[in-house]
Computed example of a mutant assay.
Amino acid sequence: MSTTRRSLVLALAAGAVAGPALAQSGLSGADQALVARATAYLEGLTQAKARFIQTDARGQTSRGVVYLKRPGKARFAYDPPSGLLVVSDGGTVSVADSRLKTFDKYPLMATPLSLFLAKTIRFDRGVQVTGVSRAADGFTITARDGRKQTAGQISLTFRDAPLTLVGWTVTDAQRRATHVQLVGLAPARGLDPDLFYLKDTRPVGVGRARM
């Protein structure tokens, strides 16, 4: 998987995840209240579905559908002509690209998804909120890796009345930003377990070794 493609995938996944941190050095009481409110809201999203629109640093746009089932499970399905599918089954994040005939796996704990998909969201483990900004209809929380093992930052945007996550922006070490807009994020019920299972179906010999 190319570095660019992987960064876009993790940027997409991050929004559903990287949320606000409880390491809130320098935040006002009002800012901390917004962080606590956002955390409680995210923990309440046990099952949800939305459309997403992703725009990368070059201005290229792609769309798809995201399904979430906490703890541990998520599915990001890109619309054609993209062949990309990203699935977390609770322990592993699998990334399949039917056009490039690639299939990659990452431990869930090594991706931003682990923060959001945990049974109990704990943003005090190495993640630091660096700012809270307000708009007429909501607010944005910006966070970074407090351990400084990962450069860059993520900004999550929430709309008020009712409180809803509407998108996020991931900025990497080179200040390249990937924007993800969520459309119609809403609780869901009875999501099919098969949504969160992804098998490498490539034939042996197509980038896949015989076991």
Rank of each mutant, 00 (worst) to 15 (best):
T102S: 08
R58Q: 14
G83M: 08
G59S: 06
F116K: 08
A50T: 02
Q128I: 12
V86C: 04
T102M: 04
G72F: 00
T169A: 15
S155F: 08
P112V: 01
G131N: 05
F52D: 00
L117Q: 00
K101I: 04
A118Y: 01
G91N: 13
V66M: 08
R159P: 07
A143D: 09
D137N: 15
K69N: 10
S82V: 08
A77F: 02
Q174S: 15
T55H: 10
G138L: 07
A136K: 14
I154N: 08
G152Y: 04
A135H: 11
W168Q: 13
G90N: 03
L117K: 00
R63P: 07
S62K: 11
L156S: 10
G138V: 03
D79P: 03
A110F: 04
L165Y: 03
Q174G: 14
V87T: 04
S155E: 08
G152L: 06
A77I: 06
F158D: 02
L163A: 06
L163T: 06
T150H: 10
A173S: 12
L108E: 00
T142H: 04
F123V: 13
D56W: 02
I121T: 02
A173T: 09
K105W: 06
R58G: 15
T55W: 09
Q181W: 15
V93R: 00
F76W: 03
V183H: 15
G126R: 00
R176W: 03
A77W: 02
R176L: 07
D89P: 06
I121E: 00
T140F: 04
R99Y: 12
T142I: 11
T92P: 05
S155D: 10
A74L: 02
Q54I: 01
R99H: 14
Q60P: 10
V65G: 13
R70E: 01
T46H: 13
P81R: 13
F139G: 04
P107D: 04
I53V: 15
L84A: 07
G138D: 03
G72T: 02
T142M: 06
Y67E: 13
G138A: 05
A161G: 11
A136R: 15
P112Q: 05
K119F: 13
Q153C: 12
R99V: 13
W168P: 10
P80T: 07
W168A: 11
V132K: 00
L85E: 11
P81N: 14
S155H: 07
T130G: 07
T61P: 06
R51Y: 12
R125H: 10
F123M: 09
A161W: 15
H179E: 13
K148P: 08
P112D: 02
R125G: 14
F139V: 06
V65F: 12
D124K: 04
L115N: 02
Y67W: 10
R176A: 08
R144E: 07
Q54M: 03
V132Y: 01
K148D: 11
A50H: 01
K148A: 14
Q128N: 12
F76L: 12
K49P: 07
I141G: 01
F76N: 03
S88Y: 02
A110G: 08
R159G: 12
G91R: 12
A173D: 14
G90H: 02
A110C: 07
Q181D: 14
G131M: 05
V180C: 04
